[in-house]
Nucleic acid binder design. Structure first.
Lengths: 234, 234
DNA sequence: TGTGAATGTAAGCGGCGATTACACGGCTTG
DNA sequence: CAAGCCGTGTAATCGCCGCTTACATTCACA
């Protein structure tokens, strides 16, 4: 948790004649007001998360990177947790975009195929953005239920899997009766693999970094094969 | 992360005639030396983990509960991380004991049954000790590879699953060829479910607290059924 | 043009991990 | 049995943290 002593050069204080435009514009002088500090703080925090994980985020460091005083962020976020919340919402936005993009390409006539596609896309994003995935997954870093956006996104995703499985069952693609069990098991599978990646378990289990993506696809396929019925062509 | 201001009563300093026994024994007076501070610190930290998760552990609070000064713990642990390491090793010891006990009851003639039994025991312990499970699972709280004990325990468990699956395959209990995929998928499944529990996802996915244990068993069975071959009676 | 709201700075509180100098006392050794 | 070493405690201190308060500056609008 120790800060690495960034040693920021004390940039000159007082400005002479800042431009009245919204965004910072003066070349050498710094305007008193930042322009869009809130946005910049979130981006700085996102970057910190990417560099050292969720706990590497400190309000002071974000302020440092934004070039403002340690107290400034508290004008925009009442607490560190609130900042983390904003970061989580941004991460969730990107995650959702990835999922939607992947599903847009999947044929609607094959629900089980779409289910598989969802699993693959889920894992692909989690593999590529482990620290951001961790933020939106693990309580501790922000309170899921405190953010309406994240919560509703999540509920939507849950409902989506439910519908997919129901359709797959209707189409005779499943041989398992209890759809809820399938849903939970599938979710546990992909979440577990993503978590193993984040938590650094995969090397210990003999999965090298280069094989990770292939293995992710393989276990999703293995799971699908395990639940697929005679009508599915897996 | 804020401490809740424990307000410890300032117990009298100087002792008169402390007993020369190893453990503290004087009724009202406190000996200068603690007796077994290391042990007590680990226990205090374990308790803190149980109360508020891994990040609720602070060296100062552990010292407070042990009734010593804030600097005392550093005689036994060079850093907070070292304390967490000791806590993790204790947790790992208990985890391993649970697994071994469960496997002792499983018939050796049914490798796939033993595999299932392992999964159930794994989940049972994780459900009952979520915060301790989190410590030994998530990097961030201690470095797995820094502890020879935890590392070897883990390697042993991994080897165990490997052997079980190989035996099950030889016995014709599996219909899947790629045993490594089965191993990773199985581990991802149980780890994912345990993580969903720890991270508070289960209620959102429609699994109430009372159903958790049953659902854990159900998804293990579902997975086993998915990989079981014609020779297995699942 | 004047003024209040928004948004920045400066200073400071208490808690934290960690280090250092010093105090105590059990144990070995002569 | 006495001496003193060394393991283990305390006290004080450092710098970083989240967060609060008082004050300064600037924008936007009447």
């Amino acid at each position: 948790m120790r800060r690495p002593a960034k040693n920021p050069p004390p940039t000159g204080r007082r400005s002479n004649k800042p431009r009245p435009a919204v965004a910072a514009r003066a070349p050498a002088a710094k305007p008193y007001h930042h322009g869009d500090l809130r946005r910049v703080l979130i981006e700085a925090a996102m970057q910190l998360v990417g560099e050292g994980g969720p706990e590497a985020v400190s309000v002071r460091e974000a302020a440092r990177r934004a070039g403002v005083s340690p107290g400034a962020p508290f004008r925009h976020f009442p607490s560190r947790d609130a900042l983390m919340n904003a970061v989580a919402e941004e991460a969730q936005r990107r995650f959702r975009a990835e999922i939607e993009m992947a599903l847009a390409d999947a044929p609607s006539g094959d629900p089980l195929g779409r289910f598989r596609c969802l699993g693959i896309a889920y894992l692909r994003w989690a593999m590529k953005n482990p620290t951001h995935f961790e933020i939106i997954s693990s309580r501790r870093f922000f309170d899921h239920d405190r953010s309406a956006g994240v919560s509703s996104d999540n509920a939507e995703l849950i409902g989506l899997t439910e519908r997919m499985l129901a359709e797959a069952f209707s189409a005779g693609q499943l041989r398992i009766q209890d759809l809820k069990q399938v849903q939970i098991a599938g979710r546990a599978l992909v979440y577990g693999f993503a978590r193993m990646h984040i938590d650094g378990h995969l090397p210990r289990w003999g999965v090298a970094e280069a094989e990770v993506e292939q293995m992710a696809a393989d276990i999703v396929d293995l799971f699908i094969a395990g639940i697929a019925g005679p009508a599915a062509k897996v």
